[in-house]
Each structure stands twice: as C-alpha cells, then as structure tokens.
Computed example of a mutant assay.
Amino acid sequence: MLYRDGHMHLENGPLTKEYVLQFVEAAHQKGLDEIQILDHTHRFIEFEPIYEDLKVYDVQKTWLENKTMKFKDQLSDYIDLMKDIQKMDLPVKVKYGLEVCYVPQYKQKIKEIIDSYSFDFLVGAIHSIDGILYDMSFSKELLWNRYDVDDIYHRYYELVFQLIESDLFTQLAHPDTIKLFQIYPTYDLKPTYRKMATLLKQHHMKAENNVGCYYRYGHPDLGLSDELLRILKEYQVEMIYASDAHQPEDVGHSIKEAMLRLNED
C-alpha cells in the first residue's frame, strides 16, 4: 500500500528548492513513499479577486492585507519551482497542486486560472460561509456567536456539494473541518454525509482523511468523525490521508494511526 501524505503547505516559507527539500527530507525520514505539496490560493496574486467578499469585515480585510503571507507570489513561479523539484532524483515522489478556496460566485474565475496551468492534483476547500471565515480565531465573534449553528452546518454542506458538483477538483479537503471548535448541530448529519459520499463517487473525487484538526486544533477525532468515516467506507469513496502540515516537522503527522483506524472493523 502506498504510504502517502496528501496535503501539506509551503505557506510559512519561501518558494525555494531549499525549503521544499525540507518537506521531502521529513517525508523520507518518516518512510513516506509520496507527498502532495500545495498552497492556499490566498498566497497567489492571481486569486485575490475571489476573496473580495471577505473584505466586508474589517478583521478579515486586515488578515488578507498581510502581504508577507497573502497574494505575494506569482502562480507561475510556484509551478516552475515544483517542476524543477520533480526533475530531481529524490527518495520520495513529489506531486504538486493547490488548495483552492471555493466560492461559488467565482467559479468561472477559478476555472479560468486553474485551466491556464497544469497540476498533478487540485484540492477544493470550503473555508468561508457566505463571506465569513469559519475557522479563524475571530470566527466565533463573526459567525458562531451570531448565527444558528444548524443553519451554519446546512450552508457549509450546501457549499461542499456545490464544490463537488463543480467538477474542478480531484480531492475534497478536510470534509468535516466545520467541527473544529467542537460546536455541533442539533440534527442528524448522516443523511448529509450520505449525500456527500454519493456525490464524491459520482464525480470521481477523493475525500481527505485529514488529521489537521486533531493535532493543530486539539479536536479529539483522529481525522474524520467515526460516523463520516463509516459512511465513506460504505459508499467506497476513495480516501487520501493528509497531515495538513504547515511546516516540515509535521509532514506525515498521525497518518499511520489514521490508516490503522480506517482499517478497523
């Protein structure tokens, strides 16, 4: 079985061979066969237009205006770097892609950008609910303390369904990361999970068993919830293990444990 980490970010470092090779070396030390490197679209100048709706809120506007992290690099520079990396004789296979913050009203803009380049994979992610980020330190004030939790969950999964149906992506990022603050709806999520599993199969997309919430946010689930994991297995959705590492030392974090859990009866 391929021992792979399907999701890791360069965003905390420069676009240099030296930095990328730190991730490769970390993967080699942990016995990985393959890694998938990506970055959030908010790193790249080309994608800034799709974040306009977030700027309505001052705290989000300030977050986006941090040019040391946001919209500071050209997409072509990243791709050229990763192609050079792939030409090297490395102990670990390296693939490259993007984690695209999917916003339905900017679907055409996203398509135009990603169609202009070649990628090994493309990860679609929902990080905001109608212009409000749900996973930031300020999200409780902007979103969770203001709106009905059931409504937030309903809307989140509506957006996930639209993401899958867009047919722009090969992989769904952290399908249930909406749970990261351990705030849950009052309704049964199983029908929602079944619909998501059905759509993933129909659109030939992988689902991430992403452990980022576990070690980065202290969530008790080692990746997907037991309920969602069971349903994805039942529907035979292809899954990919992902550390969501944002620094080299986290490459491969908890992936072996997640693999063992997936194979438990």
Rank of each mutant, 00 (worst) to 15 (best):
H154N: 13
M82P: 00
C101A: 13
T16E: 14
F138N: 08
T177M: 06
R216Q: 15
S225K: 03
E25D: 14
N66M: 03
D176E: 15
T177L: 13
G223E: 06
E264A: 07
Y156Q: 09
V56K: 15
L172P: 00
D53P: 01
V20K: 04
V149Q: 04
E52Y: 11
D148E: 14
V237G: 04
L260F: 00
I35C: 10
E46H: 01
D167Y: 01
I85D: 06
E238M: 03
L199G: 04
E208F: 07
L10N: 00
K93R: 11
E165F: 01
V94H: 11
P175Q: 13
P175N: 11
K67N: 13
N145L: 12
L98Y: 06
I85T: 09
S128I: 03
N66Q: 12
E257G: 01
Y57L: 14
P104N: 10
Y215K: 06
H127W: 04
C213G: 09
G124F: 06
K140G: 03
G131I: 07
W63F: 15
I126S: 05
M239L: 13
L64G: 13
D58A: 12
I178R: 12
E112F: 00
R194G: 03
S118C: 04
M88Q: 15
M196G: 00
E141L: 06
E264N: 13
S137F: 08
L262G: 00
F71L: 07
V123N: 01
W63K: 09
L232Q: 08
R4K: 11
F169T: 02
A26G: 03
I35S: 00
Y187A: 09
D250N: 14
I35E: 01
K179S: 08
D80V: 12
E65Y: 05
S128M: 11
L224Q: 07
L90S: 09
V149H: 14
L229K: 07
L2Y: 11
G13L: 02
H28F: 12
P175L: 09
D80I: 12
K256Y: 09
T62K: 14
H203C: 06
D73Y: 14
A26N: 03
K70W: 01
S76N: 11
C213K: 02
P185E: 10
E112R: 07
R216P: 00
M88A: 13
G131Q: 07
S139A: 15
E65F: 08
H174V: 04
R4W: 04
Y214C: 05
L21A: 07
N66R: 13
Y106C: 08
I114V: 15
V251H: 01
F119L: 11
D150A: 10
G97M: 04
L133M: 15
I132F: 15
R146N: 14
M136K: 15
A242W: 02
F169C: 09
Q86R: 13
A27E: 02
M69H: 10
D188R: 14
L15G: 02
